[in-house]
């Protein structure tokens, strides 16, 4: 049996941005899949927003994810058939929430894309698509935003703009942001940098203030 993660003990706090860095195969993606309830650990404990999720099945994990965790992926993963606004509203559709276009536009304004609401993803640049993905992640007002290599397909300027956006959201909404990156320059903007290697945390560097609410466990 391969141990993708071993002895990882990690708490993430509200209002905190945690950057996870490490070489390929170090376990970053596995850790982020666990934190985001896309996967469940074989052993150990995982608590999200106060709920233990260690032994939950797929449908139960979905229930935990829904509305609590926002996702941003390296490849944006917008639905090509839907407009920007419709992509942003998709999580609300699955949560059976009433869709309020004014709220959608407000979220798009947060990421600077209010004017692009009626556009299709193919009409946007990479940086704009990633900001739409952030807006989609924020629409349900989640407690945690998880971003897996969100700047992997962006140039430096767009990457820095995205991290600046994360910072604004943390400051404004008290969001917990967990982000994996290969870019150490961007990682230095996080409150805490966790370095993984061979599935173990080999270093934790506290760079800025820590939030007040615990959202994930070990």
């Amino acid at each position: 049996m391969v141990r993708a993660l071993d002895g990882v003990d990690l708490d993430v706090w509200s209002g905190e941005m945690v950057a996870i860095v490490g070489p390929s195969g170090s376990g970053k993606t596995t850790l982020i899949n666990l934190l985001s309830c896309l996967d469940a650990p074989d052993a150990g404990t995982l608590t999200v927003a106060g709920r233990g999720v260690t032994d939950l099945g797929e449908e139960a994990l979905t229930e935990v994810r829904r509305g609590r965790i926002g996702f941003v992926f390296q490849k944006f993963h917008l639905l090509p058939a839907l407009t920007v606004a419709e992509n942003v509203e998709l999580p609300q559709l699955f949560l059976r929430q009433s869709i309020d276009r004014a709220h959608t536009l407000e979220v798009l304004r947060t990421v600077g894309l209010e004017q692009r609401a009626a556009h299709l993803p193919r009409e946007l640049s990479g940086g704009q698509m990633q900001r739409v993905a952030v807006a989609r992640a924020l629409i349900t007002r989640p407690a945690i935003l998880i971003a897996d290599e969100p700047t992997g397909n962006l140039d430096r300027a767009n990457g820095e703009a995205l991290f600046a956006l994360f910072r604004r959201l943390i400051d404004r909404d008290g969001l917990a942001v967990v982000v994996t990156t290969h870019n150490f320059h961007l990682a230095e903007q996080a409150d805490r940098i966790i370095t993984l290697e061979d599935g173990r945390i080999i270093r934790q560097e506290q760079r800025r203030r820590i939030g007040t609410g615990n959202v994930t466990g070990d």
Partner: peptide, 16 residues
């Protein structure tokens, strides 16, 4: 497949 995975990730259940 990827789109379906994303929809499930952002909250879609099997039923959805």
């Amino acid at each position: 497949t990827g789109e379906i995975g994303i929809m499930k990730a952002i909250g879609a259940t099997r039923s959805d």
